[in-house]
Design a protein around this nucleic acid. Structure first.
Length: 602
RNA sequence: CGGGAUGUGGCGCAGUUUGGUAGCGCACUUGACUGGGGGUCAAGGGGCCGGAGGUUCAAAUCCUCUCAUCCCGACCA
């Protein structure tokens, strides 16, 4: 009996599978898995995170760790596919490396010690050390050094789209800064600098193509190469108010840079003659620049602040900046050629200056004093007195204290003069870093002994570049840039579906038949269509439609169907128009094609 | 890692001050009505209050520890 039952069930199953095609199953809202939320989850702060949760794209599993639900996965896959196509077009070749990396490789490059706590380490059953790969220079270099031994095999650019793990200090904002995230990373190998530059240029162009194809408003900016190391780099920034990075671009030339890097033009700075005597003034309890300025009835620009810093080379030194300026730690780190620079702890400040934090000044200091170039043009300013509740007025360099070096050390602000052209001024933006490309040089190849023989039979280290794109972050950034109060408005190339057909009343035979027919026509045209065939009230369907932000929405309702019409609403901008059942399909086809249009290389 | 906050059905929250054995809205199930912007009515199901320990006749509520999550900071003297 049991056998018989199984047979019957199996028989039914095979009939079932044969009679439905895949699209029939998956593109009907009533059968799909799209759990939308009416209310915003309490722990989502930024709009992309809120909307991705509400629209059923993602769900949180742990801090900085998310599951992609089907709807979100569709967007992610589209992003990946755009990346893949442009990488392939640029001559890169796809591969896939493991998440679990053996410690030996990381010890060899020196990063097992250097990378810090972001590197998630663990042991296997034999107690061997491993880490989750946060990036793959080590693994790829190991592959290349064992397989490439001649310059004839170059150039080579390998990439993968793979899940990374970085145990971030503070994951936040949903997919914007997750611990586990999908990243495209590529690594180029060339015989010499010129070759590496050419590989870099190809990637630069590929990246521009990728973000253009995504329909994003972005800037490519010069950036600091940071912990990854190397010679120079560019970041690709999607412009959005919620961005974690500040960037500047010149209003008259092509220069654009991360504020961390942005070079300011100082021109020829002359030190004005001193006109005031040095005076010691009591400033009880006035510690910050703001407090001192108010207390002395001066503007912050008339003060010079003295920052006591400690470096990885164990030096303690003083850095001077105009009172209203901010120190750029990265410029300072690069100037001093050290691994890191930190503001000194309070007790170090006290030991060095003899006063608690807030009263440091350059006069009488025994340590090296360096200054932002702007300070060179200042005279008769206020500085800390190196004693509690004391400042000096009328302070002047040369006369009262010595500065051993001037350099561009401050954070660029809007309106600063551009260092690359005459008369250009910086504009300031906020951006989300979605891509970053580096020319690495020989840092890893030398550390890991990855060499080839050149045409003269000489051994040379490979010249490398590495190139990353945060796939999930780019989707999130697209939402940050494209949404309104009702939900997201994804650009066509990243939208999970291209067209939503809203069947208003499924119980109305005419409506149902018209919607079904349209749905079928769109499927036949390979348009990605979601049919909202749920037995829900119109309000629910419209709210969900706005929330999930499919670019094109066709509403099939009894009212317009009487005249043989359906309504088309463009999610972006909200324009509505009426089309007959015959006209709508070619119209949609045209809009879909237009939304996907992109000419690479521009 | 420092500071702040929060953990109560799937989601949003109340209840904690003043201990008395868990409630509201949404969602969900069933039925009916309704059908162009989160509709109405009726009847239901679901949590032992993040976890552990303690105080007490009695703990979501008080105490201790712990875990988790979110925000700010970790450069601006």
């Amino acid at each position: 009996m049991l056998f018989y039952k199984i047979q019957v069930n199996f028989h039914h199953l095979s009939i079932h599978l044969n009679s439905l095609n895949e699209q029939e199953i998956f593109m009907r809202y009533s059968q799909y898995f799209l759990p939308t939320l009416k209310e915003t989850p309490a722990d989502a702060e930024v709009i992309s995170h809120q909307l991705m949760l509400r629209s059923g794209m993602i769900r949180k599993v742990a801090a900085g760790i998310y599951s992609y639900l089907p709807f979100g996965l569709r967007s992610l896959r589209k992003m990946e596919q755009i990346i893949r196509e442009e990488m392939d077009r640029a001559g890169a070749i796809e591969c896939l490396m493991p998440m679990a990396n053996p410690a030996e490789l990381w010890q060899e490059s020196g990063r097992w010690e250097k990378y810090g706590k972001e590197l998630l380490r663990f042991k296997d059953r034999k107690s061997a050390d491993f880490c989750m790969g946060p990036t793959h220079e080590e693994v790829i270099t190991d592959i290349i050094r064992n397989t490439v031994s001649s310059y004839r095999q170059l150039p080579l650019n390998l990439y993968q789209i793979q899940t990374k793990f970085r145990d971030e200090i503070r994951p936040r904002f949903g997919l914007m800064r997750g611990r586990e995230f999908v990243m495209k990373d590529a690594y180029s190998f060339d015989l010499d600098d010129a070759g590496a530059d050419s590989s870099y240029a190809k990637m630069y162009q590929a990246y521009r193509n990728i973000f253009n194809r995504c329909g994003l408003n972005f800037r490519s900016v010069e950036a600091d190469s940071g912990a990854i190391g190397g010679n120079f780099s560019h970041e690709f920034m999607v412009l959005a108010e919620s961005g974690e990075d500040g960037i500047v671009s010149c209003d008259s030339c092509e220069y654009a840079a991360n504020v961390e890097k942005a070079e300011i033009a100082y021109g020829d700075v002359e030190t004005p003659a001193a006109t005031l005597e040095l005076h010691k003034v009591a400033t009880p309890g006035q510690k910050t620049i703001e407090e001192v300025a108010v207390f002395l009835q001066l503007s912050p620009q008339q003060l010079v602040k003295t920052l006591i810093v400690q470096t990885s080379a164990d030096e303690i030194l003083a850095v001077l900046l105009r009172g209203d300026r901010e120190l750029n730690m990265i410029k300072l780190t690069n100037l001093l050629d050290v691994d890191w620079v930190l503001l000194a702890e309070d007790d170090v400040v006290k030991q060095t200056t003899g006063a608690p934090t807030g009263f440091a000044g350059p006069i009488g200091l025994k340590i090296r004093v360096i200054a932002d170039t702007e300070v060179k043009g200042l005279a008769d300013f206020v500085v800390g007195g190196n004693a509690i509740d004391v400042h000096f007025t009328g302070a002047n360099q040369e006369r009262d204290f010595q500065i051993s070096q001037f350099s561009d050390l401050r954070q660029a602000v809007a309106g600063d003069p551009c260092s690359r052209c005459d008369g250009g001024k910086f504009e300031k933006w906020r951006g989300i870093e979605v891509g970053h490309i580096f020319k690495l040089g020989v840092k890893y190849s030398e550390a890991m002994n990855a060499t080839v023989l050149d045409a003269d039979g000489k051994t040379r280290p490979l010249v490398m570049g590495c190139y990353g794109i945060g796939a999930g972050r780019t989707v999130a950034a697209a939402i940050e840039q494209n949404h309104d109060e009702n939900g997201m408005i994804l650009p066509m190339p990243l939208a999970p579906f291209q067209v939503l057909v809203t069947m208003l009343n499924p119980k109305d035979d005419l409506v149902r038949e018209a919607a079904e027919k349209l749905y079928q026509q769109l499927l036949d045209l390979n348009i990605e269509v979601l049919l909202d065939d749920r037995n829900e009230r119109p309000g629910i369907k419209f709210k969900d439609a706005d929330l999930i932000g499919i670019p094109l929405r066709v509403t099939v309702g009894a009212r317009n169907l009487k005249e043989g019409n359906v309504e088309l609403k463009i999610r972006k901008g909200g324009t509505m128009s009426m089309f007959s059942l015959d006209e709508i399909t070619p119209q949609l086809q045209q809009l879909v094609d237009a939304g996907l249009a992109f000419e690479p290389g521009k």
